[in-house]
Nucleic acid binder design. Structure first.
Lengths: 232, 232
DNA sequence: CGTAACCTTGATTAAGATCAATTCTCGTGG
DNA sequence: CCACGAGAATTGATCTTAATCAAGGTTACG
């Protein structure tokens, strides 16, 4: 792995070889196994991360122990930028902590850590990065907006919406087959419910001939019906 | 009202008189009465807004007609910046719409509309605004993060949390009196519940001698108990 | 081929939404 | 100054959804 990997990261896509090399030399590369914690929301903030390989879930834990997943992050996307930018305003305040917990979802999840100071240095010389950062944050805001909209509806709606959104990512035809990139447990947690309920709703959808479930594969048999459920 | 009003807006706090004048001359001032819609989430995007007087609620409406409030916006804060920044990346795409609905909560709510083109022009000459924008977006992200955490808990927890957060804003003592800046209906909608349930929980808190409610005034009688409820 | 992690199923319970009346509050006009 | 009426808030009875508790079943992997 070398500095060219950074070229895939939207934030850095306009940097030249030299700049990429310089940045790369100042980053930390870290590897995590499935289930390992990357940071807790109680830890002091060090910097933001980029996923290079594998996947990461960002989640909150409520006092009664239930976890709620906010995002899944996949290769070449960043996470935990919020404190970096909040810090910018209140210089020298170092008591910032991470806004949520994060855990690797796959074996050999490779991350790059970009420390606050490294990033600040870089932005000074490459202020156009700022605009990319803005658009990436805006995207996250829109995501959370729609996530809130989702979790205030009932579970079948949430699930139908999720299945359809996964379908949109794939090359969409009529009877499309999608493959869950996450465990059913994580899906339940992302949908703001629990394993048992997800299982029941999946079964219901299956009994109603909307989908067919086989392990992590879901075959969509009646997209119109799913659309109807998701939007009523 | 003149251009100096813009000085109160964090985003523009570092601009000089000249720049403020120039910006002000290119803005639209709009006034809304209580209950009037500022924009629907279906409308084509024009630009973002600054609240000068009054208050605004930002909300989503689910298909079954229930509204869910995401933010309340008060003087000198901005809203609806997200499409502006998404647009930046995909130049010339004009089909962006607003990410949610918005409505004036008070009579004579005064707003400034800053059209996308005006803002882009301005940023080109004042790139430091970019950093302010970043920190403002980061703040919103953190808000939504914690809002999601909140609405996945039960209603008494959500309410206790809200009351305590309102209390923190005021000059906090032991038995503090807070005044709701919003209607009970809006509070219910912000907490992701309905009027009846909010009413019942308020009564429960009152019966348990945690608070005393009189119209929009809430007297906190047992802050420790509220803290316990909010965090268990 | 055994065991742990993952997933499913059933019975029960609890939280809160819904439906249906009232009651309260406050601004307006007589 | 009082009476009216509309919107806001409350209360009660009922119903629905999904969480909880408790077993089983499946799958994957060493």
């Amino acid at each position: 792995m070398d500095s060219s990997i950074l070229k895939n990261v939207h934030l850095f896509s306009d940097l030249n070889e030299d700049e990429l090399d310089k940045l790369y030399s100042r980053c930390d590369i870290k590897t995590f196994n499935k289930g390992e914690i990357i940071f807790f929301d109680t830890e002091p903030y060090q910097g933001f991360y980029i996923v290079i390989e594998g996947g990461v879930k960002i989640f909150k834990i409520s006092k009664d122990g239930r976890e709620h997943i906010l995002y899944f992050i996949y290769p070449f996307n960043t996470f935990a930028e919020v404190p970096l930018l909040e810090q910018y305003e209140k210089i020298k305040k170092d008591e910032f902590s991470y806004p949520a917990n994060s855990m690797a979802m796959e074996e050999n999840t490779k991350l790059i850590l970009i420390r606050s100071s490294v990033f600040y240095n870089f932005v000074e010389k490459n202020s156009h990065i700022c605009f990319k950062m803005l658009s990436s944050l805006a995207k996250k805001l829109r995501h959370l907006n729609s996530h809130i909209e989702t979790i205030t509806q009932d579970v079948p709606k949430r699930l139908a919406k999720y299945i359809l959104s996964e379908d949109k990512k794939s090359t969409a035809k009529q009877n499309s087959l999608i493959e869950l990139s996450i465990s059913k447990h994580d899906l339940a947690s992302y949908l703001g419910t629990i394993d048992e309920t997800l299982s029941r709703v999946l079964k219901k959808f299956q009994d109603d001939k909307l989908i067919e479930v086989k392990g992590k594969k879901i075959l969509i048999k009646d997209k119109q019906a799913l659309i109807k459920i998701s939007s009523f």
